[in-house]
């Protein structure tokens, strides 16, 4: 299931919903992304972050990415929730959770989903600092992380 929403989400409620009624599930791996205020001493701290997205394409890409994870790993259930709009440091931005019979599939699929949505989901972060606004630049490391999954055999090594 995927959701794109402005409002916060309840992690415990989402994980409970993911596994309810399926007693074959042996574990859930989840990742929660937060707005952080990480800056060099002397630099202006982050007051808030605004996430812009491309309505329509966002839902389409998240649905495709989730289907890809379901095809690659034996998952019983998965969820991707991504927020947009203005958030302050400490707030939750994204939840990815995968449930499976065994932990390996759940851990791997969760990591795959995060790596892929970092490079394929059309979201952009605008940071607000005391010195003004700045768009967050894409990190080469995110491309490298996603590239690991481009060849399923390599990822399994």
């Amino acid at each position: 299931m995927i959701r794109v929403q402005r409002e916060d989400f309840d992690v415990a409620a989402e994980l409970d919903r993911l596994t309810r009624g399926n007693r074959a599930i042996g574990g859930v791996a989840s990742f929660v992304g937060l707005v952080r205020d990480l800056h060099a001493p002397g630099d202006a701290g982050i007051k808030a972050m605004t996430l812009e997205h491309y309505p329509g394409m966002t839902e389409k890409m998240l649905t495709e990415i989730e289907a890809e994870a379901q095809a690659r790993w034996p998952l019983d259930a998965s969820v991707i929730i991504h927020r947009y709009g203005r958030m302050e440091p400490g707030e939750r931005i994204v939840l990815v959770a995968c449930a499976s019979r065994h932990r390996d599939a759940a851990f791997d699929a969760c990591r795959f989903l995060m790596d892929w949505l970092k490079t394929k989901a059309p979201f952009w972060k605008l940071e607000e600092t005391a010195a003004g606004e700045r768009w967050v630049a894409a990190r080469a490391g995110d491309d490298a992380a996603a590239e690991r999954w481009a060849h399923p055999k390599k990822a399994a090594e």
């Binding site: 995060m114 949505l117 394929k120 630049a137 894409a138």
Partner: peptide, 23 residues
């Protein structure tokens, strides 16, 4: 997602944006 050599046609919805930074 499309590459620079992809054809464009009347009626298409074309989006231009910087590298994505979600997650």
């Amino acid at each position: 997602f499309a590459r620079a050599d992809a054809p464009v046609r009347p009626g298409d919805e074309i989006a231009l944006f910087p590298p994505v930074t979600g997650g």
